[in-house]
């Protein structure tokens, strides 16, 4: 583990929040390995802990929330970093974009100022260079008439354009790792499509790694190289996108894929997952998914399955993953 020094390596990441009903583990022992230049999809439903995982990586969980675990970026331990170092890292080598750009952008500053601010913080450029670079960045993220729009305020941009502005600000520091928290969820489908394609181009251009948090399996299928599925704060399955989509080994992954309509079977029953995701403060014993799982046995009710590799590059946390995979092949 320690031999790998490039990319992002996460071991045993936990995030705990105090609630009136006792401590709730929003993220519970997450391991991730993200290679340079890779687009990694973190999929889950609301409350699965996918967004908190992303924030915990950057130690952006506010007290009284607590974060534990090891996060190594290019061989350096983010968890042990001094606040000053960490601040340089955030928005520098590691940048983040959010679902709602309006809350992440400062409404009273023109976008030029916000981009140049980031350039000043993370580069040695002088004033003139910064101006030129800000213009260049708006161009790169595909904002038409960039020169004119630089002096406009965030509210003058449409949702999609605002998202582009936020990406431009994130790119100002030429990051090597981009953390994206559902950046396209609030956008229309044609705009989402544009932004996803833009992210792929930028990944190539800046040779960054991207961790993309989303609930939309279609987005994962069209964007990511590898993926992890989260349920109730834990990763239940990982692998390359094409393998996981072809043969899911966890019943939850299988259920998620079945819940989305595929063309060609119109007006038939969807393979839904019964029940609702559990609250974090009242997780079921054993495997958190067992009350909703058609494969569940007594073992699942007693013991929690660990995330274990079963093939090169594939891991799953399920006692019955082979039965699940076979069921998928039969279907």
């Amino acid at each position: 583990m320690s031999a790998k020094t490039d990319g992002l390596h996460v071991r045993g990441l936990c995030a705990t929040f105090e609630t009136p009903r006792g401590p709730a583990r929003a993220v519970d022992g997450v391991d991730l390995d993200i290679a340079p230049g890779e687009v990694f999809g973190l999929v889950g439903e609301s409350g699965s802990g996918k967004s908190v995982t992303l924030r915990a990586l950057m130690r952006l969980v506010h007290p009284p929330g607590r974060v534990e675990g090891n996060v190594a970026w290019q061989g350096r331990d983010l968890m042990a970093m001094k606040p000053e170092e960490l601040r340089r890292m955030r928005g520098g080598e590691i940048a983040m974009i959010f679902q709602e750009p309006m809350t992440a952008l400062n409404p009273v500053l023109p976008v030029r100022v916000q981009i140049e601010e980031n350039l000043r913080a993370h580069t040695d450029m002088n004033r003139r260079e910064r101006r030129a670079r800000a213009l260049e960045l708006l161009d790169i993220v595909g904002i038409p008439a960039a020169a004119r729009r630089l002096d406009e305020y965030p509210h003058q941009f449409s949702g999609g354009m605002r998202q582009r502005v936020m990406i431009a600000i994130a790119l100002a520091s030429s990051p090597k790792l981009l953390l994206a928290d559902e950046p396209t969820t609030a956008l229309d489908v044609t705009i989402q499509d544009q932004i996803l394609k833009l992210l792929l181009d930028l990944r190539d251009e800046f040779s960054m790694s991207v961790v993309f948090v989303t609930h939309d399996l279609g987005v994962v299928a069209s964007l990511c190289d590898r993926m992890a599925v989260m349920y109730a704060g834990r990763i239940v399955e990982t692998g390359t996108v094409s393998e996981v989509f072809a043969t899911p080994h966890h019943p939850y992954t299988r259920g998620l894929l079945g819940s989305v309509p595929h063309g060609g079977a119109e007006r038939t029953m969807l393979a839904s997952i019964e029940g609702t995701p559990p609250g974090l403060a009242s997780l079921p014993a054993g495997c958190a998914f067992h009350p909703r799982c058609e494969f569940a046995t007594d073992e699942c009710r007693r013991e929690r399955p660990a995330l274990e590799p079963f093939a090169p590059g594939r891991s799953v946390a399920c006692f019955h993953h082979e039965r699940v995979a076979r069921a998928e092949e039969l279907a």
């Binding site: 499509d193 544009q194 279609g218 989509f245």
Partner: peptide, 25 residues
């Protein structure tokens, strides 16, 4: 057609790098 092309396909093999529609509403 643009709307159909823009909707992310569930088959990872069918991905493209070309945006389905240009510009905004």
């Amino acid at each position: 057609k643009a709307l159909l092309d823009a909707a992310p396909d569930l088959d990872p093999a069918k991905r493209t790098r070309v945006a389905a529609a240009r510009g905004e509403l």
